[in-house]
Computed example of a mutant assay.
Amino acid sequence: MPALSTAHLLPIGMLVASNVFMTFAWYGHLSYKSSALWLVVLASWLIALPEYMLAVPANRAGHGVYSAAELKTIQEVVTLCVFALFSVFWLKESLSWNHAIGFALIAAGAFFIFNGKA
């Protein structure tokens, strides 16, 4: 397996950071159900702006070393990992065996995306 360079790791780091913003933008308001909907929509949009400011450059830089399908796969796996942590620590929801099986199937899909080159 070749060594991972900054060109390989920087887009992943940026996607992790963007997904933290995205997860809070999409789901953070669930802890504030008494807040007005217009207010949580506005707050979500403001949180989503830095997400886009990280995701778009991450994909542009990453496309030099990853295919579009690989970038999307990285993004989905990162999203799943961030969301799982968010669910447990922010929303105080537990994960169960069916979640673990679903995550394992997604990980298997990622394996095939990255190891299916001829």
Rank of each mutant, 00 (worst) to 15 (best):
Y52M: 08
W38K: 05
T79D: 14
S35M: 07
K72R: 10
I47K: 14
H29Y: 11
S31G: 05
C81Y: 11
E76G: 07
L46A: 12
W38G: 00
L42T: 15
L85F: 05
L85M: 07
V82N: 04
G64I: 00
Q75H: 15
W45D: 07
S35L: 06
A58I: 07
Y66M: 01
F83W: 12
L49S: 12
V88N: 00
V78C: 06
V56C: 00
A25N: 04
V65G: 02
S31P: 00
G28W: 02
R60H: 06
V78R: 05
M53Q: 10
E51V: 08
S87K: 00
S87Q: 02
A69N: 13
I74N: 03
Q75W: 11
T73S: 10
Y27R: 07
L30M: 15
S87P: 00
L85W: 01
L71H: 04
P57F: 01
S67R: 13
V65N: 01
L85I: 05
R60P: 00
F86D: 04
G62Y: 03
I74H: 09
L46V: 12
M53Y: 10
L39H: 06
L39N: 04
G64T: 04
A58H: 07
T79R: 13
S31T: 07
T23Q: 13
F86C: 06
M53N: 08
S35Q: 08
V78Y: 05
K72G: 13
T23D: 06
Y66P: 01
E51R: 11
A48D: 12
V77A: 10
V77I: 10
T23A: 08
P50F: 15
G28I: 04
L85C: 03
A68F: 11
E70K: 09
K33L: 07
A36R: 02
N59Q: 11
A43F: 09
W45Q: 14
A55I: 15
W26H: 14
L46G: 07
V56S: 02
K33C: 01
V65R: 03
V41N: 12
R60A: 01
A69L: 09
V88C: 00
G28E: 03
G28Q: 09
G64C: 01
A84K: 00
L30P: 05
Q75E: 12
C81N: 05
Y66V: 01
S34T: 05
A48T: 14
L49W: 13
Y66D: 00
V78I: 14
T23C: 13
W45V: 10
P50T: 13
A43H: 08
A69W: 10
F86L: 06
L54V: 10
W38D: 03
V65T: 04
V77E: 04
K72Y: 12
K33T: 08
L46N: 08
V77C: 06
A55G: 11
T73E: 06
V65Y: 01
V77Y: 04
E70W: 09
P57W: 01
K72Q: 12
S31E: 09
G62N: 04
Y32P: 01
G28K: 07
Y52S: 09
L37E: 11
R60Q: 03
Y32E: 03
R60T: 02
A43V: 13
N59E: 08
A58L: 08
L85Y: 02
L30F: 15
V77N: 06
L39T: 06
E76T: 13
S67C: 12
A55C: 12
A84H: 04
M53D: 05
T73K: 03
